[in-house]
């Protein structure tokens, strides 16, 4: 009966049957099992606006370059506080609509940064909008495409009250007399990006990263605590340079310069520490700054400050971990 050489029916049925069984075992059953996870206790559901933003995210093909998975290996620790778990995707990976399936958010290419936690890393709408309008306005060497069709170019007289005007530096404008107004789609997309935060796990249940430790041990030499062991430049590049730029000059009209800044060069570091920990929105002509108290330790803040206070021509006395601690405690 199973003479495949001469019996085309047997050949095809066998090929079909075995493949179907294997597929059910390796794809369909695991898929069904993973389909039914419950969200974490603190996990917010996507709002309608954010869900619309996800549609824009998929339509523009953002997943081609941006992953959304923190792998459980230590090199991915820069993208999140913990490795991603299936629960993280309960709300975002739902069927988009009748025409479109659940978004393939995990991605396979990291041409651009991972976005799992971008809502924490880059919470400001001003930065996100300017970055979408022209990524090179905030990150000189970025190769991300601009999305000008998510914005409208209008005369400054016809800006309505509820319009969100994007502060675009003049060299990135085709027509400097016009204003750039974010479209509804852009606002939805930014809302979605802002919503991308790793939900907190119930205490002590966080999965751990698989360490890649031998290199680090050899380099770190065990002196992990002192602020001297921290690389202020690297921290600045990872946390601050997106807005203030690697050259400390900021982006005119959007993010203030640090080079030559009075606050940065001030002998008394208190105001600067406070701005970093609590955020700031009192500088005329510039967007608001987010608070970093939850993201940076005292030692890290001190390391970043010392880098900023001694770079790009700045000169100011050293800040110690204790100084930061003092300000942090006084706030509480």
């Amino acid at each position: 009966m199973l003479d495949f050489n001469t019996n085309h029916k047997a050949l095809l049925l066998t090929a079909f049957g075995v493949f179907a069984v294997l597929s059910i075992g390796v794809a369909i059953i695991p898929a069904f099992q993973l389909d039914s996870y419950q969200p974490l206790p603190d996990q917010p559901e996507l709002t309608d606006t954010e869900f619309e933003g996800l549609h824009v995210f998929i339509g523009e093909g953002c997943v081609a370059c941006h992953t959304q998975q923190v792998r459980n290996i230590e090199m991915d620790a820069m993208w999140g506080d913990r490795p991603s778990i299936p629960e993280d995707y309960v709300y975002s990976k739902k069927r988009l609509d009748i025409w479109r399936q659940s978004a393939s958010l995990l991605g396979s290419e990291r041409t651009g940064p991972d976005l799992t936690n971008v809502g924490v890393r880059q919470p400001g709408a001003a930065w996100q909008l300017l970055h979408l309008y022209n990524p090179r306005a905030v990150s000189e060497e970025s190769i991300m495409p601009s999305f000008p069709w998510l914005f409208e170019e209008v005369d400054s007289t016809s800006v309505r009250e509820d319009d969100v005007v994007v502060a675009v530096p003049s060299q990135f404008l085709d027509n400097p007399s016009k204003k750039i107004v974010a479209s509804e789609e852009a606002m939805q997309l930014v809302a979605y990006l802002q919503s991308l935060k790793q939900p907190k796990m119930p205490e002590n249940s966080e999965p751990e990263f698989i360490p890649f430790s031998k290199i680090k041990e050899a380099a770190g030499g065990g002196s992990a605590s002192a602020s001297k062991g921290l690389d202020g430049e690297k921290l600045f590049m990872n946390k601050c340079s997106a807005c203030h730029q690697a050259n400390g000059k900021g982006v005119p009209g959007a993010f203030p310069p640090l080079a030559g800044s009075e606050t940065v060069n001030n002998e008394d570091p208190e105001k600067m520490i406070r701005i970093i920990l609590e955020g700031y929105n009192e500088m005329e002509g510039y967007g608001p700054m987010q608070a970093f108290a939850d993201q940076l330790t005292d030692a890290e803040v001190a390391a970043i400050m010392n880098y900023e206070r001694n770079s790009w021509g700045n000169e100011a006395p050293e800040v110690k971990e204790e100084d930061v601690k003092k300000v942090r405690d006084s706030k509480l």
Binding site: S23, A31, S36, P86, K93, Q101
Partner: peptide
């Protein structure tokens, strides 16, 4: 012949919606 059979099965599995929420989609 097998390539055709397998690919038809494959695209049906790939596009059926019943198990494709959350990480189910990623397995598929």
């Amino acid at each position: 012949l097998a390539a055709l059979v397998w690919t038809i099965v494959l695209s049906v599995i790939g596009y059926l919606p019943f198990y494709q929420n959350g990480m189910g989609e990623t397995v598929i």
